[in-house]
Write a protein that binds this DNA or RNA. Structure first.
Lengths: 157, 157
DNA sequence: TCCTTCATTTGACTCGATCAAGAAAAGGGG
DNA sequence: CCCCTTTTCTTGATCGAGTCAAATGAAGGA
């Protein structure tokens, strides 16, 4: 990916500004960052950056297709630069850590509901909930069990 | 469905109260209701019910496994009584309408992440985004027989 | 360089949800 | 049937994420 941030911004019709470059830089280093994290990190190179500016920048980036917003339940929105590929997320219930998961099928949407109830579906969003390595209780007994498949509510394989 | 709300509440160790019965009643009639809707509707039978009480009731119901909370991105939380079965949701991008979707039988490749990045996954959450029948830009003429005589472009916000 | 347009700053504000203290009620024991 | 303990509800303050609006400032084409 040798296209610069500047090129990418211009390609989608956005002006090249310091706040935007700062935010892109932060997102490149820290995928799945929330607004607060972005503001804090971006201030390393742009000390006067305001939170509202970051909201504006992110809105523009998402609208321009340069960034994607994800909103795990009960947490502030997160942003990532991985766009255009169909991937999903693992979210830690304890610490909120997020990891990418490639969709095993490839094309979006990777799932097709059996009955759409009259809806025209354009996206299937998948979130895997669990515990990350650090938050997992007990000694790291590395079992192969990956998806707890109980027959009541929640998970399904 | 001969188990009464009272029985269900007692079964999970919750006291039987008027606010709880009211909320259960509302949820039975209106699946996928948000807190505001529940408060308004429940006041028909319990006029002094406070929003905070509803928050408390819902928290207790969810903790007791009698209700489930869903949080579509960009919308207040919704609650439903369908628990224990594995189903997902269709959400309308335009009006926010929600419909249940039974989990696709058989092939659900995306529900087993290929690489869990060290996470222990306990739930896979799926949300299908699209447009509901009312919000869909006009289907090819009036050829839809499934659709009863509704005023197209229906007022639904 | 000028000038128009788009971005950012600043500050107020909305909305959903949570927290805390006291009053009310549920429901088991006497 | 009443009392007492515990849970639950009410009232009101507070919080956090996100939005709105007016005014200043930068981007970049003419």
């Amino acid at each position: 990916m040798e296209t610069t941030w500047q090129d990418q911004l211009r390609t989608v019709g956005l002006r090249v500004t310091r706040p935007r470059l700062s935010v892109l830089q932060v997102l490149a280093e820290r995928p799945h960052a929330d607004v607060d994290t972005i503001v804090t990190a971006a201030r390393a190179v742009h000390p006067t950056l305001s939170p509202q500016a970051v909201y504006g920048v992110l809105e523009a980036l998402v609208a321009g297709g340069l960034a994607r917003r994800i909103e795990p339940a009960g947490a502030p929105a997160l942003f990532e630069l991985r766009v255009g590929d169909n991937h999903h997320h693992l979210v830690c219930r304890s610490c909120g850590a997020v990891a990418d998961v490639d969709c095993t099928v490839g094309a979006a949407p990777c799932l097709t509901p059996s009955d759409t109830a009259g809806f025209v579906v354009d996206e299937a969003e998948v979130v895997f909930w669990g515990l990350c390595r650090e938050c997992r209780p007990g000694p790291p007994a590395v079992t192969a069990q990956v998806l707890q498949n109980d027959n009541r509510g929640g998970a399904h394989a």
